Amino acid sequence: MSSVPLAAGAYNRVPQPTPSFWVIKLLAVTVGETAADFLALNLGLGLQLTSLLMTGILAIAIVLQFMQKRYVPFYYWFAVVLVSVVGTLLTDNLVDNLGVPLQTTAIVTAILLAITFALWYAAEKTLSIHTIITTRREVFYWIAILLTFALGTAVGDLVAEKFDVGYLNTGLLFALIIGVIAFGYFVLKIDAVLSFWLAYILTRPLGASFGDLLSQPMEYGGLGLGTVVTSFIFLAAIVVIVVYMSFTGRGGELVSRQSEA
Rank of each mutant, 00 (worst) to 15 (best):
T227L: 04
S215N: 01
G226S: 08
M245D: 01
A160S: 13
F234I: 01
G184N: 02
A175S: 15
F186L: 13
A154G: 05
Y185I: 07
T203E: 05
R137A: 10
L194M: 07
P205I: 07
S246T: 15
T248Q: 07
A192L: 04
I201R: 02
D157T: 06
A160V: 10
Y141M: 12
A144E: 14
F232Q: 10
T248A: 06
K162P: 00
D157P: 06
I190P: 00
G252A: 04
Y185A: 11
V229S: 12
T227D: 07
A154E: 08
D212Q: 10
A150T: 11
A175T: 15
T153I: 04
P217F: 00
D164I: 06
V159P: 04
A160K: 05
I241Y: 09
I178Q: 05
F210Y: 14
L151Y: 01
V239P: 04
F234E: 07
P217M: 01
L147Y: 07
Y220M: 13
S215A: 14
G207L: 03
G222M: 07
E161T: 13
I181G: 02
F186C: 03
M218Y: 08
L168A: 13
A144Y: 14
Y167F: 15
L147D: 08
L223I: 09
F140Q: 06
G166Q: 07
V187A: 10
N169A: 14
L206N: 05
I241T: 12
E138D: 15
F247G: 02
W142E: 08
S195H: 00
F140E: 03
W142G: 05
F163K: 10
L147E: 09
V180S: 09
L151V: 00
I143Q: 05
L158N: 04
M218P: 00
K189G: 00
L254A: 11
E253I: 11
A199L: 01
I201V: 14
V193W: 04
Y200H: 01
Y141H: 15
